[in-house]
């Protein structure tokens, strides 16, 4: 058996620990030696120009991208290439995608129920009850029997959030959840995310919504060219950025 890296800190408040993470695509470093700790119950927002590696970093946390090197611990569990461990960790880490990725052949209710049944092995009745609770939480219980194609983008994304929440995850990852939405639908999704943040969920959010970052984030991370340039609480990072690149990015996006 190979050496298992011990968690670098005994810090019980850390939910995700990332150490020296590198992800290369065909020799290009999308993520270049990133280390980051996400505290339990906190909201971390990752911002940065497109191509800066923020989505790749996020996708490494549940091994949708397998890192080239470096280590990740999720709730104290070291992520390895072992398939069984990965499935167990993924069940604890909810993910919301830019393109929603609802299952188009299933109704909203079935979308939210399926993984509860086959992964969590919940009974039909229990899965249905939890699914209805989550659909109510995201504000669309009346759409339970609609198919994804019958829902607006904002509604689809809210079903996707309910689908992830129904697994009772410890962490929620959001990969540009509002980037594919029409402007009038962005707020309904952000409202759900804000409510979730207030409820104490550990969240890592990649987004261009600076308003959300300001209101909900405990920590904002600015990435550029695969590296973390600067990080800190939103008040500090948005008002007094230290780095020139951060200032340049913020001046373009905030205007």
């Amino acid at each position: 058996m190979s050496m298992v890296a011990a968690p670098p800190t005994g810090d019980p408040s850390a939910m995700i620990i990332i150490k020296n993470l590198v992800k290369e695509f065909h020799g290009l470093r999308a993520v270049d030696d990133v280390s980051l700790t996400v505290a339990r119950g906190k909201v971390t927002v990752i911002i940065g120009p497109s191509g800066s590696g923020k989505s790749t970093l996020l996708r490494c946390i549940n091994h949708l991208e397998v890192p080239t090197s470096g280590d990740i611990w999720v709730d104290g569990i070291h992520l390895t290439h072992h398939a069984k461990d990965i499935n167990a960790v993924r069940a604890e880490v909810g993910m919301v995608f830019q393109q929603f990725n609802l299952f188009p052949h299933l109704t909203a209710l079935q979308n939210v129920m399926l993984a509860q049944r086959v992964v969590r092995k919940r009974s039909e009745a229990e899965a249905r009850e939890i699914a209805m609770q989550q659909l109510a939480r995201v504000g669309i219980p009346e759409k339970a029997n609609a198919y994804p194609a019958q829902l607006s983008g904002g509604q689809q994304q809210r079903v996707a959030i309910a689908r992830a929440l129904a697994m009772n995850p410890k962490i929620m990852l959001f990969d540009e959840p509002t980037s594919a939405l029409d402007p009038e639908m962005i707020k309904e999704v952000l409202d759900v995310m804000l409510e979730l943040a207030r409820s104490g969920m550990t969240m890592v959010v990649v987004t261009h919504e600076m308003g959300f970052a300001r209101n909900a984030a405990d920590e904002v991370v600015f990435m550029d060219r695969g590296r973390i340039v600067e990080q800190g609480p939103p008040d500090v990072l948005f008002r007094q950025p230290r780095e020139a690149r951060t200032r340049a990015f913020l001046s373009q996006i905030l205007r």
Partner: peptide, 27 residues
């Protein structure tokens, strides 16, 4: 079938076989 379908299924903790059976093959 778009790659996102497999990714969504896997991100929910389904194994490759479960994702094939419940998500990819029916479509």
């Amino acid at each position: 079938i778009s790659k996102g379908q497999m990714e969504a299924a896997r991100s929910l903790g389904m194994s490759y076989v479960q994702a094939m059976r419940y998500i990819i093959l029916p479509q």
